[in-house]
C-alpha cells in the first residue's frame, strides 16, 4: 500500500563511467521526482538532472544524473541531494514552528 517492498531501486550505469547514471525508483511519483530533480539541478558539480515517468501505468520513475567528470559520482550526487531535500524539509519545519509561536504570542497581545 504505502510503500512497496521488493526490488524498488536500481541504478543503471552505462559502461564504466560513474559520472552518469539513471536511478530507477519504484513506488515514487512526481512528488519525489520533481523535488529531487530540483535539488540535483541546484547542486554544485551536477551537470544535468532530469526525471521522467515513462508510462503512467508502469510503476517506474527514472532520474537521470550527470556530474562533472572527476568530481562526485552520479550516485553520490543523487544520495547527497536526497539527504539535502530532507534537510530542506527540516529547515521549513523549524521556521514554521517558529512562525506558529510568533503568531500565538502576537494573538495574545
Amino acid at each position: 500500500m504505502a510503500n512497496s517492498g521488493g526490488e524498488d531501486l536500481c541504478l543503471e550505469v552505462a559502461g564504466d563511467d560513474p559520472s552518469c547514471a539513471t536511478i530507477v525508483l519504484r513506488g515514487e511519483d512526481h512528488t519525489m521526482g520533481n523535488a529531487v530533480r530540483y535539488m540535483l539541478a541546484r547542486r554544485p558539480g551536477v551537470e544535468f538532472a532530469g526525471y521522467s515517468i515513462p508510462h503512467p501505468s508502469e510503476d517506474r520513475l527514472n532520474i537521470r544524473v550527470q556530474t562533472i567528470a572527476g568530481g562526485e559520482s552520479a550516485a553520490e550526487a543523487f544520495g547527497g541531494s536526497v539527504k539535502d531535500l530532507a534537510g530542506v524539509a527540516d529547515v521549513i519545519a523549524k521556521s514554521f514552528l517558529g512562525a506558529l509561536e510568533e503568531f500565538s504570542t502576537s494573538m495574545k497581545q
Binding site: C10, L11, E28, V36, G79, V82, L85, A86, A89, D90
Partner: peptide
C-alpha cells in the same frame, strides 16, 4: 498546522527510505 508538519515528516521519511534503498543497491 499539524498537517503541514506531518507532510514535512512524510517527506523526510521518503528521503530516508530512498537513501536506504540507494545504499542497499550500491
Amino acid at each position: 498546522e499539524d498537517l503541514f508538519m506531518r507532510a514535512l515528516q512524510v517527506l523526510v521519511d521518503k528521503c530516508g527510505n530512498v537513501v536506504e534503498r540507494l545504499t542497499e543497491s550500491l
